[in-house]
Design a protein around this nucleic acid. Structure first.
Lengths: 236, 236
DNA sequence: CGCATATAGATCGTATCCATTTGTGATTCA
DNA sequence: TGAATCACAAATGGATACGATCTATATGCG
């Protein structure tokens, strides 16, 4: 909550309204409250948020950039339904970016940042202890925030934005293809990474991050859902 | 020309019109025909392209996402004037991404791709031989296309889009802070990279790419212009 | 039962209007 | 004469209505 505001990808605010709608839709998509394939009608979204189509279109265009929604000409905007191939590309991109981000973060990280990470880890533990879908969504979000915080600490605004997109898409992919056991091992690995950060051990932190991403992707049932994707396409 | 069409960052085309305007403005900005700080009035651009403000706004919003234009609330859109800090972040991002992209490209590159690269190198040589600002712009563009082709070969659409943005911003930065000698050494390094690609030597190709980026950034007069940036801010 | 056509629905693009903000220029006062 | 205040013009941001275009469903015919 407090973190995500500090992690806003854009310093300049073109319009508060569109950004608010974008954030709301983003959260809804990432939290799986909006299922992939769901049609996001401009009029409908506009009436929901009491905004005109102009603002909604700006928000939808932003989401289309991020890959969270796909727009089809004269058909409208739909919640993105990542293919296994796209899912793989998301993690391939993260494998490229995040080790370097971690290395850059080690150079600039302060003790205050470390404290912030520790606090974030406690949040993850808290949601891990709870049951139910809402807790799991909060857990996925907290896990993503960890990676966003790293990008924030790295100090590179561009990489921060790239990670913003990649984490959002990852959350969608995890919600789609994820089994259950991702979280627990994930937290442990987050803690290990923070330990390495605290010791300013860039090499170790990077290696841990790489393995962490490998584990996240390995825990996905991408192959199994290929059949389900077909079924989804049929009943929609 | 023919390449950039194949390298379009979005498979799905939300609206041809806005994309066309975006491309035109992009080229104009990257080619330095539109100087940084230039105001891009919605009405003016709209009348130039014979499009309504709606479409122009979509195009400007896309460009704002890419960092090529900056929008100020109730003031309008302006061609971005990258600060030295932003310029450095662009190259830091490229240093992270491109070696990995090269490695991925080695895995998938075909002999036909190699031929394409050779042909691209000849284009660079051709523009290198010519004089004048238009030839230099074409040279910068051709040099950028080389990197975009690599991202294309890597097969990762996400990385392709990231590179699309980074190359565009790099071209802007080079046009702003560049001295003159970048191009010649750049071409030689491109050729070396292609050689390594042909031998499927991922490690060497990655290392060459890293050095190449280092050289590009080293040849910029970022430090000198820091004072000029202040002067620019004053006389604008 | 399959296919082509026609109609209905929705979206996309344009034009127009209003509100808000910015920047400039004129007026006024010290 | 200089500076500060105020007013007006211009542009953006946002909302709405209308026409054009495309999709999708339904209907009719072979």
């Amino acid at each position: 909550m407090s973190i995500s505001e500090k992690l806003l990808p854009f310093d300049v605010v073109p319009d508060d309204r569109a950004l608010a709608i974008r954030e709301a839709l983003r959260n809804a998509i990432v939290d799986r409250r909006l299922a992939p394939g769901t049609k996001l009608s401009e009029s409908e979204v506009g009436s929901l948020f009491e905004a005109s189509r102009t603002v909604v279109r700006a928000a939808l265009q932003m989401l289309a950039f991020e890959g969270l929604v796909k727009t089809e000409r004269n058909r409208g905007a739909f919640v993105s339904n990542p293919t296994p191939e796209e899912a793989h590309q998301v993690f391939a991109s993260r494998r490229l970016l995040e080790p370097g981000i971690v290395s850059a973060a080690v150079e600039r990280i302060t003790d205050a940042d470390i404290d912030m990470f520790r606090h974030q880890l406690q949040e993850e533990v808290r949601f891990m202890g709870e049951r139910g879908p809402s807790a799991r969504r909060a857990e996925i979000k907290a896990s993503g925030d960890f990676h966003l915080m790293l990008a924030h600490v790295s100090g590179n605004v561009i990489l921060q934005r790239f990670m913003d997109e990649l984490v959002a898409r990852s959350s969608l992919v995890i919600a789609l293809y994820g089994s259950t056991g991702v979280s627990r091992c994930g937290h442990h690995e987050h803690a290990d990474i923070v330990d390495a950060l605290q010791k300013r051990d860039a090499a170790r932190a990077s290696a841990l991050m790489l393995h962490h991403i490998d584990h996240i992707e390995a825990d996905l049932d991408i192959r199994v859902r290929e059949g389900l994707a077909l079924k989804d396409a049929l009943d929609i």
